[in-house]
Design a protein around this nucleic acid. Structure first.
Lengths: 117, 117
DNA sequence: CAGCATCCGACGCGATACTG
DNA sequence: CAGTATCGCGTCGGATGCTG
């Protein structure tokens, strides 16, 4: 069951919540930051995510793919098989929002989080 | 411990993730949609959230307040005490992003979720 | 009116091991 | 290389009842 279907079970549908659900998940935000810049292969992606296990990366990628935010491409012409991930058009349409949230988060960290340290 | 401090424990800080953490929570998105329009009192807010219990509303409001997204005002001049909630300046600075995410979510629901039903 | 305390179930996520 | 399977724990959130 994808994020949105899961939400509709609870009745009340808030589109804002739909968007948030799609982005909610342990590594999704960083994954999207990476894929925003360029397509990446599984292991390359994993290297840029210190602390992320293969299991978690697979889970998050599978969810993003099921939600049509990213797409997987499998090159099986040689073994070992290589897969790469990139944003779908739908995923690319999220980029402006992601950039805004990233900027806002940076501002938040500097004005709210850091002064408390 | 607030959302951001919690995140920094895991090392890697992604500002996008910071923003997402602040908005993550069962009723926060709808609460913010309501407070975007006008200040509301606890019980009024509760009435606009079908299925939300008092406990959950209190929890979410407390977190949003701790994260400085909303502020509580207590009018104790009469009993029973009345409290009201509104966005802080920081919370208001989120409004453009929230509106974008809401629009994107609506588009997503129409083009991805609905055709599947 | 506006909460808090307690109990409990579901799920997200980590650790670890196995596979085509 | 790119995953899947299994187990277990911690946190989120629901149900319910109490309080200043």
């Amino acid at each position: 069951m994808d994020a949105v279907t899961q939400q509709t079970r609870h009745g009340e549908v808030c589109p804002l919540d739909t968007t948030l659900q799609l982005l909610a998940g342990k590594w999704k935000s960083i994954i999207l930051c990476r894929l925003m810049q360029h397509e990446l292969r599984y292991t390359q992606l994993l290297k840029t995510l210190p602390g992320c296990t293969r299991r978690m990366l697979s889970l998050q990628l599978a969810q993003l793919e099921a939600d049509q935010i990213i797409q997987k491409q499998i090159d099986a012409s040689y073994v070992p098989i290589k897969t790469s991930y990139r944003l779908t058009p739908l995923g690319k349409s999220l980029v402006p929002i992601i950039k805004l949230m990233d900027q806002w988060g940076e501002h938040y960290i500097q004005t709210v989080t850091m002064p408390e340290n």
